[in-house]
Design a protein around this nucleic acid. Structure first.
Length: 608
DNA sequence: TAGAGAGGCACC
DNA sequence: AAACGGTGCCTCTCTA
């Protein structure tokens, strides 16, 4: 047994590392006397889905506030057995982002998500309910090191955070390569590993009592854990890839890129992402770029280049676009596949400051090109299945209407009136005879959305390309036509100014920056919409739909359904998803495609 | 060599 | 009085 010591704020903590089977005795005593334990794992990487081709668990760590046990499971199968026993024996396991560790022990030791989820206490959840702000937003952050820094011990957190970088230097490898490389019994590594379950344990004790009473009363803490379990099972299932399709697109894009890059290079630009090189190249052609960003850098983006009538501008845009498509979408998909050609994008149900989900990794699902199946066609429903997509209609505007109780807005939704037309009418007068759309409907639409985002006429004008006068009229008309929304916005801003926070209908507390009180309305809308989707996910899970769920993207849920039951299941799922928020229905509409996710959009396209 | 910051572009 | 909110990923530049 190796014994290590460390100090947290002058308090000594001990880390015991098992070396031989004989060391398991005191570990078992520890587990038996600590029904609640911090838990963490160290692995060869983050790709838990590759356990059949290289991914390994190296250490498993358990701990309480002052003591940790490190079991190097990679050197002794009996350690693996002891870890399995401990995981199953424990009453509660405290982990930071425990979803990852659950995937690890499931794929390497066979202890399932279903076994562990009911006993997990996740500090990422408790911390987010207390304060969801990232460090750059002047909040505590959401990563373990950031939270330790904020809540426990600033200097120690920095030391521990830096230790893996230091170890990598000592081994003379890149940081990303240290995880599989560092020797099992490297003291510094063991210390780093042993501290994490102690930190998680302490962090839970600190953050849990800080969860706002209103959040606790509404059961948010348990609710988020149930949600995290569903998303973990979605991650485990993953999404089947159409490898041929993806590889064909990569080959195509490479040809496209080399064609345009040849043009770009002929003008002396080597780095496509270098603004300075672009500016110089245009200067040589007698074209001066002058528009600057807020930080004083000359802009070279699409907005600028699209206005320049020169073969170089065209070539830069085309080369950039092809590179982005290849690297961001298709190559990430290929690189993220497991041995069964499935990707497992990481779903973070409690990441954004409004609690919106984020999806990252092999597929940044929230940023796929809209209105086309170009990237989505990479994702396939199972064999003999078809893809289906169900989305909420007008979710955020309906949340605004319901939360504000504005009679005009509610009436529009009750009677299926076009709200964008209504706003245009309020601003610019009645519709001309015999047309379905108001000639200035776009200004109405832009205003409706922009107001939800906390914007004013300037934002409407620049983002929606609306003349300033029209934008001013439309925004003014919006607040006058739907005065209830103004009352809601004022109430939220007032609450934010007084307390620094607003609360949503689910009891979630959201901090609002003092100098941006206007953001309160958007936070309320965005977060409530997220919770309506989250609620739908939990109900779908209860109805047995989780094995069919593939991705959740804000207001849309994507499914893989058996071909012959697709119509029936889509209908059933849509009914489950629909929700009446403060008296107003938020409808859900399903669409069924062919095998690929993209086919749903391509079918839509062909209708027009 | 790593990390931070910034620009740019893909979304809801 | 007015005020656009929330993301992810790639690339380059600069600093330590």
């Amino acid at each position: 047994m190796i014994d290590l010591e460390c100090k947290i704020k002058n308090q000594i903590v001990k880390i015991h590392v098992c070396e031989t089977t004989w060391d398991l005795g005191p570990f078992i005593d520890f587990v038996e006397t600590n029904p609640v334990m911090g838990f963490d794992t160290e692995t060869t990487g983050l790709d838990w889905w590759n356990a059949d081709r290289g991914f390994r668990i190296r250490l498993a760590q358990f701990g309480n506030a002052t003591e940790a046990w490190v079991l190097p499971v990679e050197i002794n199968p009996e350690f693996g057995e002891a870890v399995k026993w401990a995981l199953r024996y424990a009453q509660r396991l405290v982990a930071h982002n425990g979803t990852f560790d659950q995937h690890v022990v499931e794929s390497t030791l066979g202890v399932t998500l279903e076994e562990l989820a009911p006993k997990m206490l996740d500090t990422k959840i408790s911390a987010h309910l207390v304060d969801p702000r990232q460090v750059k937003e002047a909040g505590p952050g959401l990563k373990l090191e950031e939270l330790v820094k904020f809540y426990i011990d600033r200097t120690l957190a920095e030391e521990v955070k830096g230790s893996m970088t230091k170890i990598a230097k000592r081994y003379k490898v890149k940081k990303e390569e240290i995880w599989p490389t560092v020797e099992t019994f490297d003291r510094e590594y063991l210390l780093y590993a042993g501290m994490d379950p102690i930190f998680a344990f302490r962090l839970f004790r600190i953050t849990f009592p800080k969860i706002p009473a209103r959040s606790r009363q509404r059961g948010l803490f348990a609710w988020e854990h149930r949600l995290a379990h569903v998303t973990a099972r979605m991650e485990r299932a993953g999404y089947l890839v159409d490898v041929e399709y993806v590889e064909a697109r990569i080959a195509e894009l490479k040809i496209e890129e080399s064609k345009w890059m040849a043009v770009v290079r002929s003008f002396g630009i080597e780095l496509l992402g270098s603004g300075a090189q672009i500016v110089e190249a245009f200067a040589r052609e007698g074209i001066r770029l002058t528009e600057k960003t807020a930080k004083g850098v000359i802009k070279t983006g699409e907005e600028i280049l699209a206005k320049i009538d020169h073969p170089l501008a065209d070539a830069i845009l085309k080369a950039k676009s092809a590179t982005k498509k290849r690297k961001t979408w298709f190559e990430n998909i290929i690189n993220g596949m497991d041995s069964q050609n499935r990707i497992h994008p990481s779903v973070n149900p409690l990441q954004a400051r409004t609690a919106r989900w984020t999806i990252n990794g092999s597929l940044a699902a929230q940023t796929l090109p809209a209105g086309t199946g170009y990237v989505r066609s990479s994702c396939l429903a199972e064999i003999e299945h078809v893809s289906a997509s169900i989305d909420f209609g007008n979710m955020e505007l309906r949340v605004l209407a319901a939360a504000s109780g504005d009679p005009t807005m509610l009436d529009a939704f009750y009677h299926d009136k076009d709200l964008h037309n209504l706003t245009a009418i309020a601003a610019f007068g009645p519709m001309p005879e015999g047309v379905e759309k108001h000639p200035k409907r776009k200004a109405g639409k832009g205003t409706n959305f922009t107001v939800c985002f906390g914007g004013g006429w300037n934002a409407v004008s620049t983002q929606w390309d609306i003349p300033e006068d029209d934008a001013k009229k439309a925004v003014k008309a919006f607040w006058e036509a739907y005065p209830g929304t103004k009352t809601l916005s004022n109430r939220l801003m007032d609450e934010a100014r007084r307390t620094g926070y607003i609360y949503t209908a689910t009891g979630r507390r959201l901090p609002v920056d003092k100098d941006r009180p206007y953001a309160a309305l958007n936070y309320y809308i965005q977060s409530s919409a997220r919770d309506i989707t989250a609620r739908a996910v939990l109900l779908l899970d209860a109805a047995g739909f989780t094995p069919h769920m593939r991705l959740v993207i804000h207001d849309e849920i994507v499914f893989s359904f058996p071909k012959e039951r697709a119509a029936e299941l889509t209908e059933q799922a849509a009914q489950i998803m629909e929700f009446t928020f403060k008296g107003l229905l938020v409808p859900a509409d399903g669409e069924i495609g062919k095998r690929s996710w993209g086919s749903i959009l391509d079918l839509e396209e062909s209708k027009h």
